[in-house]
Simulated scan of single mutants.
Amino acid sequence: MNEFNELIDILRKVTRTKLNIPKSFLTGEEFEDFAREVLFPKEVYDLLHKTHNYKQNSQDFVEDSLLPDFKFRNRDLNIEFYIECKYRDITKIQNNIDELTKIHESKKRTHEEEILLEKNINKIGTVEILPQSQYNRLLELNIKQRVLICIGLYYEKTKNIYPYVIPIEHLTTNSIHIYDLENYIVPNNYTVIPDRIAEFYLDKSSNCISCKKTIENRLQQPLCRECHFNWQRNRVFKSEMNYCHSCGKKHKSSVARPNCIECYKKNINVVFDI
């Protein structure tokens, strides 16, 4: 009987501890555990720093808590980087997008309605990833040491968390549209490959040939998502664009020929080792 009472006391303590932690912190800390155990496991990444949790900070705030959640080092490549974990439930957002799309699909849309639909999807699909003050602070830290944001998006319909890893400088603001994260997804329940982290150290930033937004170097798709959708409507492969994909200079480019002549020659030299 005494053992039973002791067990009840333990359960009460655990329950009290969990109830005292705000739900947002609880899910966030659970995602941090997932990031350490699955995405950045100790077999591949050494842990150099870990920020104090909610319970520790509620008793006595530690200044180190202003740093990102983790600092890791990969032993093989000898690269160090910070990871800030953020967990967001996008069920409501995705349901709103699905509902909005379904309403518009039920009738033939005019060009004006197409534009309005895209604007509304952009509006309701944008998620704040970081508070503005934290975004500014981590951007400043990123000058000295690489900072990556590990984002977990939970969607109730699939009962799954979709993890993404994105360099903070790829965030043009403290918010991002959920569709703009597609190039940064990590296969669920898999370790983040160190080579992928190393790629973030290379200067691979390129430009959308239509609006000059910073995107990855993709000669086969040199447009950002929004401009790509606009281009898809016309499907004019050689329609004239405004910028060079590689250097960003003003240039009469196209999806067929995204680079200016100088960048084209440089790429040819690299590919064929001329």
Rank of each mutant, 00 (worst) to 15 (best):
C85Q: 06
C247Y: 12
L138T: 10
I10W: 12
V165L: 10
K266D: 09
K159Q: 11
R257C: 03
E216I: 04
K107W: 13
N74R: 01
Q221G: 06
T126L: 03
E156A: 14
S205M: 09
P68V: 02
Q221A: 06
S210K: 12
R36M: 05
N174G: 01
V192G: 02
R146F: 07
F229W: 03
N120M: 06
V186R: 10
S210T: 09
V165C: 06
H251G: 12
N96T: 11
F72D: 02
F4M: 12
S254C: 10
K144W: 14
H228K: 01
Y135Q: 08
P222V: 04
N207H: 15
N230V: 03
N183C: 07
K144N: 13
E156K: 14
N207V: 06
K42F: 00
Y190L: 09
N78T: 01
K157M: 11
L19K: 04
E3P: 08
V44A: 00
C247L: 14
L139C: 12
S133M: 03
R196K: 13
V62L: 08
S106R: 15
E113Q: 11
D64C: 03
E80T: 08
F70C: 01
Y82R: 03
H228N: 06
I215N: 02
E240M: 08
T191H: 05
A256Q: 10
V271Q: 11
H104T: 08
R36W: 04
L117I: 04
N74T: 00
A198Y: 12
I103R: 12
C247M: 14
D273N: 15
E226S: 07
L141I: 05
K265D: 14
Y162A: 05
C85Y: 02
P163S: 08
I8Y: 14
I268N: 07
E63L: 14
N5F: 15
Y164W: 08
C208H: 10
E118I: 10
K252Q: 14
N189P: 00
G152T: 05
K204A: 04
H52N: 06
I197F: 03
V236M: 07
T214N: 09
Q56F: 11
R225G: 09
S253T: 10
N217W: 12
Y162F: 13
I124V: 06
N269S: 12
T91A: 13
V271H: 08
Y154L: 09
I261T: 10
I168T: 04
V44F: 00
I261S: 14
K212S: 11
Q94F: 12
E37G: 00
I115W: 00
L141D: 06
Q94H: 11
R75N: 02
I8D: 05
Q134W: 02
F70E: 01
K108L: 15
D98P: 07
Y201E: 14
R73H: 01
E262S: 11
L139H: 05
G28Q: 03
H111E: 13
R235Y: 07
